[in-house]
Amino acid sequence: MARDVELLLCPVNLRHAETNTNAYDEAVAMARRRNARLIVATVAPEMERNLNIRDSEAYWSQQLAKFVKDNPAEGVEVETIVRKGAVHRQIVRLACERKVDVIVMNSANPKVQDYLLGTTASHVVTHAECSVFVVRA
């Protein structure tokens, strides 16, 4: 069954979101141009490094809501989602589950170890069933 409106996914690393909103800004602009809905997602770690965070999902849900409020996507229907686990796997899984049309995500400049280990963006590009638009940080 075909959808009338496209669905975009923009994963956001909230640890770097204050200094870099390039992919989010592009996702919002793309959603406006395509009259699409936008999922803004973040992936929480399985184990929090900060022991003061007792409820990881609640904490990251609040942080994601604050990010979207501070960076309004006027004219775009936005849904927020928090997942836990390995970032690259959760992005691909979410895109597949929700039948996303396009993933819009950041990619940092690669370093030597990225070529050996693989970056989040390269994993998503390789494994996603939909198109992936990578925005350089």
Rank of each mutant, 00 (worst) to 15 (best):
1 M>W: 02
5 V>H: 12
5 V>N: 13
5 V>L: 11
6 E>K: 15
7 L>Y: 02
8 L>H: 08
9 L>R: 08
9 L>F: 00
10 C>V: 10
12 V>R: 02
12 V>A: 06
12 V>K: 03
13 N>E: 13
14 L>M: 06
15 R>A: 09
15 R>Y: 06
20 N>S: 15
20 N>E: 07
20 N>L: 03
21 T>K: 14
21 T>I: 07
22 N>D: 11
22 N>F: 09
25 D>T: 11
25 D>L: 09
27 A>R: 03
31 A>M: 10
32 R>G: 13
32 R>Q: 15
32 R>S: 13
34 R>H: 06
35 N>F: 05
36 A>C: 07
36 A>H: 02
37 R>K: 12
37 R>G: 15
37 R>Q: 13
39 I>F: 07
40 V>L: 04
41 A>N: 01
42 T>A: 09
42 T>E: 02
43 V>S: 03
45 P>H: 11
45 P>A: 13
45 P>Y: 10
47 M>C: 00
48 E>M: 13
48 E>S: 15
49 R>L: 14
49 R>H: 12
51 L>P: 03
52 N>G: 08
53 I>M: 08
54 R>K: 13
54 R>G: 00
54 R>L: 11
55 D>F: 02
58 A>K: 14
58 A>E: 12
59 Y>M: 05
60 W>P: 03
61 S>H: 10
62 Q>W: 01
63 Q>H: 07
64 L>Y: 02
64 L>I: 07
66 K>E: 15
67 F>W: 05
67 F>Y: 10
68 V>R: 04
68 V>F: 08
69 K>M: 13
69 K>F: 10
69 K>N: 11
70 D>G: 04
72 P>E: 05
74 E>L: 10
75 G>H: 09
78 V>A: 09
78 V>G: 08
78 V>F: 01
79 E>I: 04
82 V>R: 08
82 V>C: 05
82 V>T: 09
83 R>F: 00
85 G>I: 04
85 G>E: 07
86 A>I: 12
86 A>G: 00
86 A>P: 00
86 A>F: 00
87 V>F: 08
87 V>G: 04
89 R>E: 13
89 R>T: 04
90 Q>P: 00
91 I>R: 05
91 I>P: 02
91 I>F: 09
92 V>A: 15
93 R>D: 11
93 R>Q: 13
94 L>D: 01
96 C>T: 15
96 C>F: 11
96 C>V: 14
96 C>M: 15
97 E>G: 00
98 R>D: 11
101 D>M: 11
101 D>A: 13
105 M>C: 03
107 S>K: 05
107 S>W: 03
108 A>G: 14
110 P>N: 12
115 Y>A: 12
117 L>F: 11
117 L>E: 13
118 G>L: 06
119 T>E: 07
121 A>W: 02
122 S>A: 11
123 H>I: 07
127 H>R: 07
128 A>Q: 02
128 A>P: 03
130 C>H: 12
132 V>H: 01
132 V>W: 04
132 V>Y: 09
134 V>C: 06
135 V>Q: 05
135 V>K: 08
135 V>W: 02
137 A>G: 14
137 A>V: 08
137 A>Q: 09
137 A>P: 10
137 A>N: 10
